[in-house]
């Protein structure tokens, strides 16, 4: 790689982020808030303060698991946009199951079962879009989104009726005691979910780039018809991709439910799914690169949450930033293509 290419590569990442933060700052300015104050506060709270940094690391766990799932799907050319439903449904079922199991099973086994069940729930929730896509070729964007809305409502029904803890006034699942949750790392408040999440991202990256199965998925992603001609069972690979992707999102739900919250309240829906999409694009579906971007975004979220309380800038601002980030990513990508085309021509 020449120095010029390296600079171009760095610009492809830095430019969209810088543009999104600048235009986002202009929005803040228009609303009568000082953007410099806001960004400085976010970095101080999310990154530079020890408590905030631990929170950011903790928040990275579910985001990374979702990112791992999206990398599998996007590399295989499948738009799994139903992550939020898969995540929430898995989180609620894991949260409801763990307090029951802990009564007669050892703690680690309970947590392990919680993660496995969450992965299965997530995967099961992707079955309808996967089969519709594999069998009759229905566009998976729409179906996975619909299943997501359905899953979020179903999760709330589950919390309010079968899993409701009668001991509380607000509808929520039974609480898993703090000492039974995912173990903390060393002397920090960061739970072991981050280890699972980083391992998942690395494993997914190795699977996609180093194994025959990963290569098959990439072939389907690059050109499904060519893959079919090469003798691959595209339908089965589609279902497998969806199951893996949604299973990882489900594990993300377990990480939040069993690591941080211990109980899920009705109407809790963090909506991480679509927020992670630009991070995966920034990383160009690269598993190792996504770790850095996810941490950056977690800092933004955690810092943004305390800015919402202290500076009166509601957290919706993060949504604006994410939209802008995606937009500028596409624009920078386009300019880069133009530049290459000109050089060839």
């Amino acid at each position: 790689m020449s120095a010029r290419e390296a600079i171009a590569g760095a610009l492809r990442v830095a430019l969209p982020i810088a543009l999104a933060l600048t235009v986002g700052g202009a929005v803040l300015l228009a609303l009568g808030k000082d953007p410099i104050d806001y960004y400085v506060f976010v970095v101080e709270r999310g990154l530079l303060s020890w408590a905030g940094f631990q929170e950011s690391l903790t928040r990275s766990a579910p985001l990374l698991l979702i990112a791992a799932g999206l990398i599998v799907a996007f590399r295989a050319g499948i738009w799994n946009l139903g992550v939020d439903g898969q995540f929430l449904l898995a989180a609620v079922i894991a949260a409801a199951l763990a307090p029951e199991l802990i009564a007669f099973l050892p703690g680690l086994l309970t947590l392990l079962i919680g993660f496995v069940v969450a992965a299965l729930v997530g995967a099961a929730w992707s079955l309808v879009p996967a089969l519709l896509k594999a069998r009759i070729g229905v566009n998976e964007i729409v179906t996975s989104l619909m299943m997501s809305f359905l899953g979020i409502s179903l999760a709330n029904v589950l919390i309010k009726i079968p899993f409701n803890d009668p001991a509380t006034t607000v509808p929520q699942t039974r609480t898993l005691a703090v000492e039974d949750r995912l173990p903390r790392l060393f002397d920090t408040t960061v739970h072991a979910g981050i280890v699972i999440a980083v391992a998942a991202v690395v494993l997914v990256h190795l699977m996609m780039t180093r194994t025959a199965f990963g290569l098959r998925l990439q072939m389907v992603g690059a050109n499904p018809r060519a893959a079919q001609h090469a003798g691959l069972d595209v339908g089965r690979l589609t279902v497998a991709t969806f199951a893996l992707s949604a299973g990882l999102a489900g594990m993300g739900g377990a990480a939040d439910a069993l690591g941080v919250l211990g109980t899920i309240r009705a109407d809790w829906d963090p909506g991480y799914g679509l927020l992670v999409v630009p991070l995966v694009f920034l990383a160009r579906f690269h598993g190792i690169a996504v770790i850095g971007f996810t941490l950056f975004f977690a800092v933004l979220m955690i810092g943004g949450e305390s800015a919402a309380r202290r500076l009166g800038v509601p957290n919706f601002f993060v949504l604006v930033l994410v939209g802008l980030l995606l937009l500028f990513l596409a624009v920078v990508e386009y300019l880069d293509q133009m530049r290459r085309r000109r050089r060839v021509a």
Partner: peptide
């Protein structure tokens, strides 16, 4: 410009969600 319709579509939806919620808040 021929950019990816899905990426831009998601970006516009997220941006509009955030922007309208922000404006409503203030």
């Amino acid at each position: 410009l021929g950019m990816n319709q899905i990426v831009i579509g998601i970006a516009l939806t997220l941006g509009a969600e955030g922007l309208t919620a922000l404006l409503h808040h203030f």
